[in-house]
């Protein structure tokens, strides 16, 4: 289980989507790390990567919309961080489409995705929750 209660920001829409994003990342990691021969699981690894990428785009859009709705002051900076990460993942995938989906590059991408998401949800996104609470209070 990758999701931890301390990742909650206190906004149900965002917390539910974060849970789903961690679930899809966890599925990707499990396929990449399950010890089965790479050529036998390559299609599954690519599928789980695709599901994760798809949800990242969906979630970033929703989270950015929520930030605009509440007038989050760091919206522009946060949007740039999202765009930068999405571009980085897209670049990994583009390179692998050219050079082949190697096990090592997929493992590297899984590690990068995992640490980025933990830090982003654990720190940057917490500030959205703090701001939302400060407006309510």
């Amino acid at each position: 289980m990758m999701w931890k209660e301390r990742y909650r920001i206190g906004v149900d829409l965002i917390d539910d989507q974060h849970r789903e994003l961690f679930k899809r990342l966890s599925n990707f990691i499990r396929v990449v790390q399950n010890g089965e021969p790479w050529d036998e699981k390559l299609d599954e690894a690519k599928d789980t990567l695709g599901f994760m990428q798809e949800y990242v785009v969906y979630h970033f859009e929703d989270e950015e919309r929520y930030q605009r709705e509440i007038g989050y002051p760091d919206y522009e900076e946060h949007r740039k961080i999202h765009a930068g990460f999405k571009a980085e993942v897209d670049e990994y995938v583009r390179l692998m489409e050219e050079e082949g989906f190697s096990e090592e590059t997929m493992q590297e991408l899984a590690a990068r995705f995992m640490t980025w998401l933990i830090m982003h949800v654990g720190r940057a996104d917490q500030r959205i929750g703090e701001y939302a609470r400060s407006k309510e209070g």
């Binding site: 289980m1 990758m2 966890s26 990691i29 790390q33 899984a110 990068r112 995992m114």
Partner: peptide
């Protein structure tokens, strides 16, 4: 702790994750 998956060797996933941390 980060991935929720048991690891048994220092492969590219593990070493990349440590590098990122």
């Amino acid at each position: 702790i980060m991935s929720g998956v048991d690891m048994d060797e220092i492969d590219t996933f593990v070493s990349s994750a440590l590098g990122e941390v």
